[in-house]
Amino acid sequence: MLEVFELTKRFKNKEAVKGINFYMEKGEIVGLLGPNGAGKSTTISMISSLVLPTTGDVRLRNESVLKKPEKIRKVLGVVPQDIALYMDLTARENLEFFGRIHKIKKNDLKKRIEEVLEIIGLKDREKDLVKTFSGGMKRRLNIGVALLHEPELIIMDEPTVGIDPQSRNYILETVKRLNEEKQITVLYTSHYMEEVEYLCDRIYIMDHGEVIASGTKDEIKSILSQEQTLVIQVEILKGEFLKGLEALPNIKNISVNDPILKIIVPKKVNILNEIFVLAGETNTNISSVQIETPTLEDVFLHLTGRQLRD
């Protein structure tokens, strides 16, 4: 349905997106995962025709849309990262305004607004000013506005940032429902890997403007099938202990979150012994050790040496 070829965006002094490729089939939920500043929003802005790419192409059903933005705008619903709503209007007034500028006929719009209010669960608050809403309610209305013109494809840019777990679950369920019941194609952007893991059929992981991994959940995790993650908690983290660990062979990656250490090592290697010896030599007390199966977080750690969330 949608393809992106070698998309690049260079701002004055910064290359935010460096030649990424991806595709989406109709009915899929595709995840775009990456830390802040990875270039996700810039990519979305280029797809949705708000920002012209420096190079590359965006194609909708095999047709380039760079010169004809109207085409993609018609089928596209964008949920921006910021809450793009009028705080001094009520929920219904917002929906009415955006519906009308989408040229939805008055009577159709009335019906449609009822449906959307139902979907986002704000029927009982429709007459309240948006500024009186909780973060979660604002996020829901932010999504609702993007649904008004019944888009085939929805792009959501971090739609759950800064809200309570309950609202977050509501939103995740809503996305899933829209996809299952209405076959809406979804591009879901997030830096929460558990959301992406829960929702998405396929995932692109972005960092520093590049796609560093892509595929189904299992495909991506299999990058780590040869590895395991050790989570070690110490009482007091000493520099010598850390240096010693770094010097050990086989250790691929260490990330420190004092007093917890995450270490990625090949599966077959038993490194625990050496770690305990090192602990003894440096007078470090180990309080616990866990062996974890990999998560997308670990994949990211593996690929970049950094954690997704700092």
């Binding site: 802005s45 949705s48 025709s49 708000l50 109207e70 705008r73 018609k74 596209l76 964008v78 921006p80 793009a84 709503l85 009028y86 955006f98 500028i101 989408h102 040229k103 506005v145 013109h149």
Partner: peptide, 9 residues
């Protein structure tokens, strides 16, 4: 909001 307005064509 301006982006949204543009997206509404």
């Amino acid at each position: 909001i301006f982006d949204r307005i543009l997206l509404a064509n």
